[in-house]
Design a protein around this nucleic acid. Structure first.
Lengths: 272, 272
DNA sequence: TTGCTCCTCACGTCACGTGAGGTGGC
DNA sequence: TTGCTCCTCACGTCACGTGAGGTGGC
């Protein structure tokens, strides 16, 4: 028989842990003195303690350890638990590798710039959107803005005329390509009941699991710079655009003050 | 201005998280309605939220994020924090790799044996020991037991004669080698004040960071099998003995019942 | 006798998730 | 008006670590 302290040393665990395992009925001492409460462990219990520690070291929760130790799982179930744990660990390692990469990148930029370079670019997801749109062609990147601006009044008029409420933020989408004119869509999100009519077409944008997003603050005259910055950032991060249309979401446009406008630029990415 | 829901969507976080960051003074809404408690966020706050999320994604605690965001750390300190995080992540990944290896080993043994092979072998550390000993030579492995047994009565007598109290468990140590006689030490731990005398020598065993340990239950006549099992296990695990003397710690030896004896076998390992 | 070990509460950890119960704005 | 969003508590999470305050055994 061992005291709790001896047994703890033998198993390489703390006394507190043994008390915890007792309280959880995971490893109950062979006897407990009814008067003093002193716990006594038998030599034969070392085996269970070792198994407990080994399973915990694999990353199982105490509840899982209990079911395994108490033989409540068959060989197949145990295989399943191990495979699940395998998958979880693999994912965990991959996550931490990503984190490590980002830490290293920060360290490299900090060496060069000696302060925290902070950009307002994040990677997020973009939802599927059902849109009522009017589209046009822009000859060049610089031409996109004027084209969009010319499309919205007509679109708004057509939607209002059709009695369709406009509640969500307007969304514009462009199909960027290296050469040739750019297809420009000026649009508003609409419900499933709305269909194409004279004055606007209804189409859907697919959901995108990963987009690089930059929040552009202020008037739209400098939005080209923001798109450029976003493209440069994607390149620096070693990511690639997926080729799906980019989106401009006009989150807030107080009509009296363009300097307070808020626009999200979203550039779909290929899976990493 | 955004409501908390809009701002949460924009930043890809939950409403609850924004309330939490408010409570922690990490990201306080630009204004809070004194009557309704409704929070309003400004577009310009998106930057801070993005930085917050990015730093949290690197694995920093919210408290660390706060000091970094509030510019309470200089470039050097920040470099230090990033390097620390780098080290932590590297260690974490190494740990998880080890876990993954062990999970895979379990899966392979379970394929073959279709049930949980549980051995009572663990890896633990062994402390430095100051020992009073008598030693002898054993011609072969089989001869070790008799030699040890012959040494202990004389050693006990010499220690008692010198007035030295015996409180801790007896420890035997052998220097295993492939050929030739085996040096056998029968010993008891003693305090720093005890020195070599007629009848026993005092020497110290170095601490060992990693030993493979097997708890042998019962009489010592089958202890050879336990040593064999321990050696086989070390081989299977792909570990190597360090060559330091192996230890037998006689944890419990009730004189009336050898079947309840408890002995720890410890085999020093090379660092992994 | 003096340490040393043992005991039982009970709080703290970390970053929120998840109700409960209620109010405000379109 | 009916949902939808917002609000404030407050408990739960997971496996213990860390006192506080007290008792038992050599």
């Amino acid at each position: 028989m061992f005291t709790i302290g001896e047994f703890a040393r033998l198993g390489g665990v703390s006394v507190r842990m043994l008390r915890h395992y007792d309280a959880q009925r995971l490893l109950v001492p062979a006897r407990t003195d009814p008067h003093s409460g002193y716990r006594s462990y038998e030599a034969a219990q070392v085996g269970r303690l070792n198994r407990l520690v080994a399973l915990k070291d694999l990353g199982f929760t105490l509840e899982q350890v209990r079911t395994i130790l108490d033989d409540e799982v068959g060989a197949d179930e145990l295989r399943g638990m191990l495979r699940l744990r395998h998958a979880e660990l693999t994912a965990q390692i991959a996550d931490d590798r990503g984190r490590l990469d980002r830490v290293e990148r920060r360290l490299r930029t900090i060496e060069k710039e000696s302060h925290m370079t902070q950009h307002d670019i994040t990677i997020t997801s973009a939802p599927a959107l059902r849109l009522a749109e009017r589209s046009g062609l822009a000859e060049s990147i610089e031409d996109v803005g004027p084209v969009v601006r010319s499309l919205y009044p007509q679109l708004a008029e057509a939607l209002v005329h059709a009695g369709i409420p406009l509640q969500d933020a307007a969304v514009a989408a462009y199909e960027l390509s290296d050469e040739g004119p750019i297809q420009v869509h000026a649009a508003f999100p609409v419900g499933d009941d709305v269909v194409s009519t004279d004055g606007f077409d209804v189409f859907t944008l697919s959901p995108v699991p990963e987009v690089a997003q930059l929040i552009h603050l202020g008037a739209l005259d400098t939005i080209g710079d923001s798109w450029q910055a976003l493209g440069a950032w994607i390149e620096r991060e070693g990511r690639s655009p997926s080729g799906e249309p980019v989106r401009e979401v006009y989150l807030d446009m107080p009509m009296d003050d363009p300097s307070r406008w808020v626009t999200a630029l979203q550039w779909p990415l290929q899976p990493d």
